[in-house]
């Protein structure tokens, strides 16, 4: 008992103060990309060719955060002359098209489905479906339940059954073998419901683009309300998305 109490004192209170204060993230973290529109064509082309995900649109001078894995290759090859990744983790959108960006993102809180805020603003129950992928999106969703993030303080929980949930959170590129299970889970969720796509796999196929075993974009099979990009999205990215969209 004494040992338990001693540990309790040593641990202290570790819960962060987000959204009132933004917790510090280490400097090398790669968040929202910013584009220098004045970069020379040559440099833009070099970045586009080096990108393992072909996420850079040379003509529009934009980067598709839905395909991007935030590996930072473009920033490195161009020495930051075309793309730089900032420390800003608030990068989610309500429209797939908005992920193709030059660094300007619409304010997520002003999305077109404001009625969700009234419905789910005080209590939001989420059912997560892991549909292929690599398990790191799952890991960084799980972490939201730990004391540092403490998702439950916002009235948001992950629940065991789709019958109890208001939204499904999908991770992974929806393999052929998981498609039916995913669609059945969606069907089992009562209306009104929201669909949240977490991670570049879910949004575009991510690293598995081109495989016949996967679905390139959850929005091709389900109506997606919230897109959270990253590989995986930082837990704070997830938290920002959930709070801005539903609160």
């Amino acid at each position: 008992m004494l040992n338990t109490l001693k540990n309790r004192f040593e641990q202290g209170c570790k819960t962060n103060n987000y959204p009132k204060e933004k917790p510090a993230v280490f400097e090398r973290y790669r968040g929202k990309p910013e584009i220098n529109k004045d970069a020379s064509l040559e440099i833009i082309e070099m970045c586009a060719n080096a990108c393992p995900q072909d996420a850079i649109d040379k003509d529009l001078k934009k980067i598709d955060m839905g395909r991007c894995l935030f590996c930072g290759t473009c920033e490195r090859v161009s020495n930051g002359k075309f793309v730089t990744f900032t420390g800003d983790f608030e990068i989610s959108t309500s429209q797939r098209a908005d992920l193709l960006t030059d660094g300007d993102l619409p304010a997520l809180a002003e999305h077109s489905k404001q009625h969700f805020k009234k419905l789910f603003g005080r209590s939001l129950q989420l059912r997560q479906v892991s549909a292929a992928g690599c398990n790191s999106c799952e890991a960084d969703l799980n972490v939201l339940a730990t004391p540092f993030f403490d998702l439950a303080r916002f009235g948001i929980n992950f629940v065991a059954s789709p019958r109890h949930s208001d939204a499904i959170v999908v991770t992974g590129p929806v393999s052929r073998n998981m498609k039916t299970a995913l669609l059945q889970t969606y069907e089992a969720t009562p209306d009104p419901k929201a669909v949240i796509a977490v991670g570049s796999c879910t949004i575009s196929g991510g690293p598995f683009l081109g495989s016949p075993e996967i679905t390139e974009g959850l929005d091709t099979i389900l109506p997606v309300d919230l897109f959270i990009p990253g590989c995986p999205p930082h837990p704070l990215t997830n938290l920002h998305a959930l709070l801005s969209f539903f609160k």
């Binding site: 292929a132 992974g172 495989s211």
Partner: peptide, 10 residues
């Protein structure tokens, strides 16, 4: 098998 993404073929 549900997570099969065809990694080796990729």
């Amino acid at each position: 098998g549900y997570q099969h993404r065809g990694v080796e073929n990729l």
